[in-house]
Design a protein around this nucleic acid. Structure first.
Lengths: 336, 336
DNA sequence: CTGTTAGCGCGTTCAC
DNA sequence: GTGAACGCGCTAACAG
């Protein structure tokens, strides 16, 4: 920066100012400085900037897995808002393991992010403590809990499935089963199981609930085929299968075709997530649409609001939002 | 760190050493220090560490889009090797736009990553200059070029499609078309078009090549349906459609079923990428398997090798690997 | 194997 | 609107 200053004919302070707040300097100064930056191919060292300013202009995003496209959509939503605002997002993934999350948060904290974003609401005690002590905004998302660490942008996984049961009942199904491979630690998927049980109690109280939940099948379409096989074995009289994800539902649907089972004639199938494949398959899949992009965008807005408030010294209570509830949507299609 | 040192009864330097290289200190010292770290809930400030050591322990990964699961697999491969080695990966995405890539690289450079990884081999002149000047290892990937910026881990998109044409010819197809929606800037997909033209010239020289390449359809299954419609209109006598991606091929395959077209009876279909859906559909999709995870792992190994060499002062020439060529695989299935 | 000294490259503060 | 002094929290280099 000193070199740039020398070339421009000003002090390093002026270079720093122009770089951070161009409109704060006189136009001719600004021009000269920016010219010198180009001439010297100067790239600011953000580590030094971070150290001196105590702000890193990064937001930490903690997600279960990167490769799930639906979570990628949420990250996309975050980016849509945060990148234009000058923030970088640093992503970490936990593979649904709380202890990995704890290690990850510890390591991310070392970079002094200005805020944290989580997909999920379940964390170890130590994780929560670290976050509280860091004293930065934390937004959790993708589910609905009573007491978030700080702020929450979510929807009720549980109620969405209860609603699906209600719909199936109305559509004439009497013996729906809930089927899925649920990683231990995936509390959102576990909420969906509860939602199923709620729904059965409320809408089909005469029926014994049918659940088949394993934890050792990978998150792939082919697991849907395997789950279908297991579920038909265990619940031969079941007339509708509610899968914990569209991915499993899609695999099961294709397997039904291979087996010569008619959907929804012989068996109705539902999913969760409203992935693109749900719309494209024949029959198209009845499922639950999740506001994945919107969650990210809303979380980003909350983060920016909080950060601006902190910078300008606004009292916390003025901006600390309540929890934000977004709405899922039941997508009724041909598979039921 | 001074506080931790006081609690432990040692100097800050010793705390620093224990944190970075635990085996470098006497066991009783190590114990005391780590105990003090826990007691004070100390979290190291990596920005300061970075500044002082001139190493950030981060690797920048530049990819076209996060949400494409096949790229996520490559990032997974990177993680598999780099995370255990103590590195963090910082991801940026370009949406296939060279100018966005340039801005992204500039911004990432500000964090002083220890190395760069790219999916893709096409960059602006300014981008290349910045990277060369940064003087850090750069690994490009996912395609095959003569002169990479630094190192390359890839395969020939072009030759893979040529091989597919050869296979189709052997299988009895005479009038294959190449169909896709290709974002401007997606040089790998553009290589595939060239591979198709090579293949036609070499294996079906009597036929006029049939290409339908648009640039305005989104990267979604539903675009496959649209591409199928356009291609049938333009090339009614075509007997095999080679799609630029499994996603389009899948959409087209499902659309064929809806239209009552038999695959491969009336029309053969091939894809690219070997996504899971390619295996699961009926008929299963003939496609090209890309070593996506392996690319990431191999790139990570090269990066570690280079970084260790730099640290230990080994001369560049000793470790600077040649380009690494990985092999794709033609997956012949039922759709041809 | 441990401690001391100096400085990494910036931004904040205050003076002008 | 611009410049000088100082320090952010850590590690490299050296001494012991």
């Amino acid at each position: 920066m000193a070199d740039v200053a020398k070339v421009a004919g000003f002090s390093a302070q002026t270079v720093s100012r122009v770089l951070r707040k161009p409109e704060g300097s006189a136009p001719h100064v600004r021009e000269k400085v920016l010219e010198a930056v180009r001439a010297t191919k100067y790239v600011q060292n953000l580590a030094a900037s971070n150290l001196a300013s105590n702000r890193s202009m990064t937001i930490a995003a903690v997600i279960p897995v990167i490769s799930a496209s639906i979570f990628a959509e949420t990250v996309q939503g975050l980016s849509n808002i945060l990148i234009p605002a000058g923030y970088q997002i640093i992503i970490g993934h936990t593979d649904y393991q709380e202890d990995r999350e704890e290690a990850l948060v510890r390591s991310l904290l070392g970079r002094r992010p200005d805020a944290f974003f989580f997909i999920g609401t379940r964390h170890t005690k130590a994780t929560k403590e670290m976050l509280v002590q860091a004293g930065i905004p934390v937004v959790e998302s993708w589910d609905w809990v009573q007491k978030p660490i700080d702020q929450l942008v979510g929807f009720s996984n549980r109620r969405s499935i209860t609603e699906m049961v209600a719909y199936l009942k109305r559509a004439g199904y009497q013996r729906p089963a809930f089927v899925g491979s649920i990683r231990e630690g995936d509390d959102r998927a576990e909420s969906r199981v509860k939602g199923y049980l709620d729904g059965m109690k409320e809408h089909l109280p005469s029926e014994q609930p049918r659940t088949l939940v394993v934890d050792d099948l990978p998150y792939k379409m082919s697991s849907g085929r395997e789950l279908l096989r297991l579920a038909r074995e265990q619940y031969p009289t079941c007339d509708a299968m509610m899968f914990s994800s569209d991915l499993f539902a899609s695999g099961a649907l294709l397997a039904c075709q291979a087996l010569g089972l008619s959907v929804p004639g012989d068996l109705a199938i539902t999913g969760f997530g409203d992935y693109e494949i749900a719309r494209e398959l024949k029959p198209a899949l009845t499922t639950i649409n999740v506001p994945s992009v919107q969650i990210g965008e809303e979380a980003a807005r909350i983060i920016l609001l909080r950060l601006n408030a902190i910078r300008s010294g606004t009292p916390e209570t003025r901006v600390k939002a309540k929890k934000v509830k977004l709405s899922y949507q039941l997508m009724v299609r041909e598979s039921t």
